[in-house]
Design a binder for these strands. Structure first.
Lengths: 184, 184
DNA sequence: ACAGCCATGTAATCGGTTACATGATTGG
DNA sequence: CCAATCATGTAACCGATTACATGGCTGT
């Protein structure tokens, strides 16, 4: 059973994108990440091209033809075992890392807020609040505009709700600020 | 200006922990991550010991004495520039990566849910739902029990709300399932 | 005393980032 | 036609992971 090792999160996403969109060039994949709503993956060439190469050597991807634009690029598609590997990545059971509370750099910092001089705490929180509001507005616009795949839409809705939850939480922290300062 | 390069997320957290708890051994730091509510950092020895070493060479940490347990371990504390670097990490302005929507492997997968055979979709979502409920209960217990630093508490509250938001979102996805299946 | 855990590391590997190189394509 | 951008890569680096090695401490 070839290529049966587990997939990275990024590898799973790339397989999924190619499966959804049909045969793709590496660059088309890159663009998805470059335009992505979450900044977590840079979509750097140094990530994508070697990844495609890797998955090709594992026979999960296969070049299925030239792009035709004279740049020597090629279209890649999933093989049968690629489809299997993708479905396996997509389906339960999931690891703790998949299901657990995702990391949030703002949350980490709030945990250390007591180490900031009290006046700076409110400044921190207000700054975060404003940025969150801005991001939320952008997401709203995005949700209103695009008519994509219903599940992609639901995923975007997920980031919207996540961001909204973070926002109300920050408001809660602001309100708790005097009390927190007192009990230090 | 020595050691003025940016800190990793993990480096920032380690500095913060040592600042909060006072002089620490590397292993004490490891335990924090091993017991952490979010599984994102493993707290592996191979991450922590070299990190402490790195920050020491950058003069952000300094060994301030032996542990006294005869194992040759040492207690580390922040230097003056360590405190500066930490405050800089902790304060605005923040990068896009810090403020943006954090990654969520479940969310990624939901975006590809249309590629799963329809009966498997509900199974996926129910599994996630159950796991989230379980995790939520654990977090509740944790919030009820521990009387820690108020800001750490608020951070835990943040993960609670994040998890809760994910849960209600999954329920929303379940309800949207028939409609989504129809419009494929 | 000895088994098992605590604590401190090290080595190999791996996936992703930044930065660079190169040629094709396109717009003014 | 020439500059800017598109597209395809490659090289060096870097931080974190897993797995391993070693030795002190502790409970029975």
């Amino acid at each position: 059973m070839a290529g049966a090792e587990r997939l990275t999160e990024l590898e799973g996403c790339v397989l999924g994108l190619i499966r959804q969109r049909g045969p793709c060039t590496p660059y088309a994949i890159r663009r998805e990440f470059l335009a992505s709503l979450t900044p977590h993956w840079s979509g750097s060439a140094g990530a994508i091209y070697p990844l495609i190469e890797r998955l090709s050597r594992r026979r999960l991807l296969r070049a299925v033809g030239p792009t035709g634009d004279g740049r020597g690029g090629r279209l890649y598609a999933l093989t049968a075992s690629g489809r299997r590997a993708f479905l396996h990545w997509l389906s339960p059971p999931f690891s703790e890392l998949t299901l657990g509370v995702p990391p949030d750099p703002v949350r980490s910092r709030v945990g250390f807020l007591g180490l900031l001089p009290p006046p700076a705490r409110l400044a921190f929180l207000n700054e975060v609040l404003e940025q969150f509001r801005r991001a939320l507005a952008k997401l709203e616009a995005n949700l209103a505009r695009e008519a994509t795949d219903p599940f992609e839409r639901l995923a975007v809705r997920g980031s919207y709700l996540a961001l909204q939850a973070r926002l109300t939480w920050v408001q809660e922290v602001i309100e708790a600020l005097p009390k927190a300062a007192a009990c230090r």
